[in-house]
Simulated scan of single mutants.
Amino acid sequence: MTEILQIPKLITVFGGSGFIGRHVVRALAMRGYRIRVGCRRPDLAGHLQPLGNAGQIQPVQANVRVRWSVDRAVEGADHVVNLVGILDEGGRQKFPVVHDFGARAVAEAARAIGAGFTHVSALGADEHSPSSYARTKAAGERAVRETLADATILRPSIVFGPEDQFFNRFANMARFSPALPLIGGGNTKFQPVYVDDVAEAVARAVEGSIEHGKTYELGGPNVMTFRQCMEEMLEVIGRRRLLVPVPWWLAGLQGSVLGMLPGKLLTSDQVTLLKSDNVVSAEAAHEGRTFASLGITPQSTGTILPSYLWRYRTAGQFTRNIVA
């Protein structure tokens, strides 16, 4: 008898070339899926190719602001994942366009072809938040729900990992600065979540091993204040630095100024966002909408940070009990 060759399912991942995206692509590739990565600059997505077998991962040009490019990127897909998001605005990349219009465009494109849909939002998304980032994230979730009631929405807390822009940024700052700022006094609470744990949640949503139509809140095993995050980071890199509380009014002023400079180390909207805690809600835990219900045991910062922050130590990986 002639054996029928079963072609692996095709998954389209928007934003797959970013920080979370590369880990999601790897998790999907390990499961044997064919992956089409929709990104604005596929010529800069070469780092994705080694994550799978030859021909398994295909970057294509797509922009969530341009609907026809979204439709083209999802053609023939069995499942669509939207990871697109921005932390600050610049040029044509505005919060309402990327987080709201973009999410709806991708969801509508997935609905048109009958594909499953997974949307990655953010913990703290709130339609009534004074932060534009949080409001538009919530608007994006609403757009997805209105379009596809059975979509899976994942809300991670602050995500850490080898390419993150949180621990890496402050660890690099600690190499040159004698002090680190604690915005608002450093009392804002986070529940840092490892990027590979988020990627595993996305992969399980794609393969259908979790219940669809729900919004899951993803947080790590530990709730930490901003100050505690900085203290742990400094301990890992073996450096002593003064932690200086910065009052909200001054942080807002700094954000207004720094937000206009290239690189945008801090924006006024980010300062506003930091005024609210970023932890898994008691409601989500009670209703079974957390990592526990996904069958995933999240990893802690204490386990993961030393694996990539060693490069900020005075002698790199060869540093032994040296505090600078």
Results as ranks from 00 to 15, higher is better:
residue 184 G to C: 05
residue 87 L to H: 08
residue 83 L to C: 07
residue 150 D to W: 07
residue 60 V to Y: 10
residue 275 K to D: 01
residue 177 S to F: 14
residue 167 F to M: 13
residue 39 C to A: 05
residue 316 G to M: 03
residue 286 H to D: 15
residue 222 N to K: 12
residue 223 V to R: 09
residue 277 D to F: 09
residue 175 R to E: 11
residue 18 G to W: 02
residue 102 G to P: 10
residue 242 L to D: 12
residue 318 F to T: 12
residue 30 M to K: 15
residue 227 R to H: 08
residue 302 G to N: 03
residue 100 D to L: 12
residue 56 Q to Y: 05
residue 144 V to P: 06
residue 224 M to T: 04
residue 237 I to G: 06
residue 271 V to E: 04
residue 312 Y to L: 11
residue 189 K to T: 01
residue 187 N to T: 15
residue 265 L to W: 10
residue 240 R to P: 08
residue 169 R to I: 01
residue 195 V to S: 04
residue 145 R to I: 15
residue 142 R to F: 00
residue 268 S to A: 15
residue 198 V to H: 03
residue 27 A to D: 02
residue 256 S to E: 13
residue 72 R to T: 14
residue 252 G to A: 05
residue 51 L to V: 02
residue 138 A to R: 14
residue 71 D to G: 02
residue 193 V to N: 01
residue 211 E to K: 14
residue 178 P to L: 08
residue 82 N to V: 11
residue 103 A to Y: 05
residue 209 S to F: 06
residue 88 D to H: 15
residue 174 A to P: 01
residue 245 P to H: 11
residue 280 V to H: 02
residue 107 A to E: 02
residue 175 R to H: 00
residue 94 K to V: 13
residue 311 R to E: 09
residue 148 L to Y: 03
residue 212 H to S: 15
residue 322 I to S: 12
residue 57 I to P: 01
residue 13 V to G: 03
residue 174 A to S: 06
residue 125 A to T: 07
residue 324 A to N: 15
residue 260 M to N: 13
residue 36 R to C: 08
residue 290 T to H: 10
residue 86 I to L: 13
residue 185 G to Y: 01
residue 269 D to S: 03
residue 134 A to Y: 09
residue 90 G to A: 09
residue 84 V to C: 08
residue 155 R to F: 03
residue 308 Y to E: 00
residue 98 V to A: 00
residue 305 L to R: 00
residue 280 V to D: 08
residue 113 I to Q: 02
residue 157 S to H: 05
residue 174 A to F: 04
residue 140 G to F: 01
residue 217 E to R: 10
residue 175 R to K: 12
residue 16 G to P: 06
residue 323 V to K: 03
residue 204 R to P: 09
residue 171 A to N: 08
residue 58 Q to T: 14
residue 252 G to P: 07
residue 132 S to F: 05
residue 121 S to D: 10
residue 21 G to H: 04
residue 308 Y to Q: 00
residue 74 V to R: 03
residue 271 V to G: 01
residue 43 D to H: 11
residue 31 R to P: 04
residue 206 V to H: 09
residue 147 T to L: 10
residue 85 G to I: 07
residue 44 L to R: 15
residue 171 A to V: 06
residue 278 N to P: 04
residue 75 E to M: 13
residue 55 G to L: 09
residue 104 R to L: 12
residue 272 T to E: 15
residue 169 R to N: 07
residue 95 F to V: 07
residue 112 A to L: 11
residue 308 Y to H: 01
residue 283 E to C: 05
residue 43 D to V: 11
residue 212 H to L: 13
residue 151 A to S: 09
residue 8 P to R: 10
residue 119 H to C: 10
residue 65 R to H: 12
residue 125 A to Y: 05
residue 185 G to P: 07
residue 233 M to W: 04
residue 291 F to K: 04
residue 69 S to R: 11
residue 106 V to C: 07
residue 220 G to E: 10
residue 63 N to W: 02
residue 121 S to Q: 06
residue 86 I to M: 06
residue 257 V to T: 08
residue 46 G to L: 12
residue 113 I to M: 01
residue 4 I to R: 14
residue 189 K to R: 14
residue 199 A to M: 07
residue 27 A to V: 05
residue 114 G to Y: 02
residue 216 Y to M: 12
residue 28 L to M: 11
residue 149 A to P: 01
